[in-house]
Design a protein around this nucleic acid. Sequence first.
DNA 1: AGTATCTCCTGCGTGC
DNA 2: TGCACGCAGGAGATAC
Length: 273
Amino acid sequence: MPELPEVETICKGLAPHLIGRTITRAIIREYRLRWPILQKLPKILLQQSIIGISRRGKYILIQMAQGTLMIHLGMSGRVRIIQPTLALQAHDHVDIILDNQTALRFTDPRRFGSIHWIDSHTDPYEHRLLINLGPEPLTTALSGDYLWQRAQKRKTAIKAFIMDSHIVVGVGNIYANEALFLAQIKPTRAAGDVSRTEFNTLVKMIRKVLLTAIKAGGTTLKDFVSHEGMPGYFQQKLKVYGRGGEACVVCKQPLIEIRLGQRSTVYCGRCQR
DNA sequence: AGTATCTCCTGCGTGC
DNA sequence: TGCACGCAGGAGATAC
């Protein structure tokens, strides 16, 4: 379940392996992802040189000479740098083979991920999947005031609100639960009822959980090529997510677990108001 | 426009 | 042991 910290870590980890390389071959074994992969993508990628790698929200952007390859990992997607001879396993859908006997392998059992090609005539940020995204949580584009403003008159639960990528990107279910706990805000409250002060705290806590996870992910970065270990966010101590019924780390009350917008939601009935 | 619900998919845990 | 089932979840699509 790659969340934004993992995507950030992946981008940093991939960069030295990809930048400056040229693609010698692309093999697509399964075109049916969340959206079908462009049929002519293997041909397009041929002989492309890789210039840079970045991300927007959880979309990975691999900039090439003639366009940008945009990858979303969905729920279960993974990318690794491998030897192209490495035995294929189930759900190894795409190999992008480079000019130095390595390859970028995309694996995604649930196929919630996606791969798009954006021609260099189009600004990647103008792509329909990116153009309406909210601000990045780790930049000054996100502020308590911004969230407060957008929340006015909104009846949606605050948790669903901060998980909406059109409001702010990169806050998945795990971090929404954690950030709301740290900010002492009950997940079910209407977004419009959350005060400006509370939004300021919430933004701080969103940044805190994301940065903690990025830092943790960084420790596995050096082994990026071969490492199969836990993504960063599992290394940080989760205070509420996955702990329904267990004791609140602050007040020892049993944590409450509910479903909110079809998502598992855990909070402390005493600490969060 | 805002809101809630549905949807894609496979792997895994649970209960019988 | 094996089956059916429910759940996990990012985020766009859909129906009000």
